[in-house]
């Protein structure tokens, strides 16, 4: 159900741009209007989501405790898996963001011989997740060659590392292969494993299909049916310098690729893809486990009216003395 809906959505997007450019000739709409909508939706939406999260109070101290808490000096403290200081939190966050440490801890639960449980080694999700994210980052940075003039040195350097196999011309990029393989794995995982399939929603399948279509359209354009990349760069530079131009005679495949990436950017702030910013704002990850050192005050506590014993005694002192009750102050 979710798969069909997501697949059909992506097919509909591709068809829409294909017909729009081929039949209706809406090159200005798909080449200029949509990209600007995408840029501003992404920047505005991303900022809005982050500020919305920043305004949300955290009522309790809820860091994930994945190791020994700081305790007595002779008990070994797990500084990165259960940080008690901001520096430890930064360390854990770096490992999480750059190396996906929490995913690396993933295990598989299995029953055997009736009621016995076993935890199995399961690193495939971690492996393909990290391959996917890094290959996407490389592809993203590589594309800067279309958006900058002169092209900065780090883009060239990355390009030559990514193309170091020197297979064919235009040279094969390692990141292209890795990207498609990783997205395919992440999709198959959702289809093949029954438990994962059960919890998968259209919001899970749609980004995967979108990324797959995006990758395939890019690969087709580079290695198979070519487009004139000088015109592509002219268009891309026109957008980022706010002097949009639509050069004549760019293939429709380019417009499909452009429309899919614009869809991704528009979809981004409203979807689970916001984990890009959300990972930094997760209270379970960004709080130090110092609840035995510093008292965490719930920010939404309202001022409670209290009546202490001293105030009570001040109020009733004379009556208490009259009745012969003991008082602390005479």
């Amino acid at each position: 159900m979710g798969i069909k809906f997501s697949l059909l959505s992506v097919v509909a997007l591709v068809l829409a741009v294909f017909l729009g450019v081929k039949a209706a000739g809406l090159t200005y709409f798909f080449g200029v209007v949509i990209p600007y909508i995408a840029i501003f939706t992404f920047i505005g939406g991303f900022t809005f989501r982050i500020l919305k999260w920043a305004r949300t109070p955290v009522p309790f101290s809820i860091p994930t405790t994945a190791g020994q808490q700081k305790s007595l000096p002779w008990i070994k403290h797990s500084k990165l898996d259960n940080p008690s200081t901001p520096a430890g939190v930064v360390g854990r966050m770096i490992l999480e963001v750059l190396l996906f440490r929490s995913l690396f801890r993933n295990t598989k639960l299995e029953k055997y011989d009736g009621p016995k449980l076993a935890y199995q080694w399961e690193k495939w999700l971690w492996l393909f997740a990290i391959l996917f994210h890094y290959s996407f980052l490389v592809i993203f940075v590589r594309h800067l060659r279309f958006f900058t003039e002169p092209v900065p040195g780090f883009v060239h350097a990355l390009d030559s590392v990514d193309g170091m196999l020197q297979i064919g011309l235009p040279g094969l990029y390692i990141s292209d292969l890795v990207f498609i393989a990783a997205v395919t794995f992440l999709f198959l995982r959702r289809v093949v494993i029954p438990q994962v399939r059960y919890i998968s929603l259209p919001a899970d399948y749609f980004p995967l299909f979108l990324l797959l279509a995006l990758g395939l359209s890019g690969i087709l354009m580079r290695y198979f049916t070519k487009v004139d990349i000088l015109k592509v760069k002219e268009l891309a530079l026109g957008i980022v310098t706010f002097h949009p131009v639509i050069p004549e005679g760019i293939g429709v495949l380019f417009f499909i690729h452009l429309f899919l990436i614009c869809t991704l950017f528009i979809y981004f702030p409203f979807s689970k893809l916001m984990h890009l910013g959300g990972v930094f704002l997760s209270p379970t990850r960004n709080m130090p486990n110092d609840s035995r050192i510093i008292r965490h005050i719930n920010p939404w506590n309202y001022p409670v009216k209290t009546h202490t014993y001293e105030e009570y005694e001040d109020h009733f002192r004379e009556k208490m003395i009259e009745a012969g009750l003991p008082v602390e102050k005479e």
Binding site: D159, S160, G163, G171, L230
Partner: peptide, 15 residues
């Protein structure tokens, strides 16, 4: 002229 514009500047691409 075109290779530089398209960001194919280093000796490695095109080689």
């Amino acid at each position: 002229a075109c290779h530089n514009y398209a960001g194919l500047k280093l000796n490695s691409t095109p080689y």
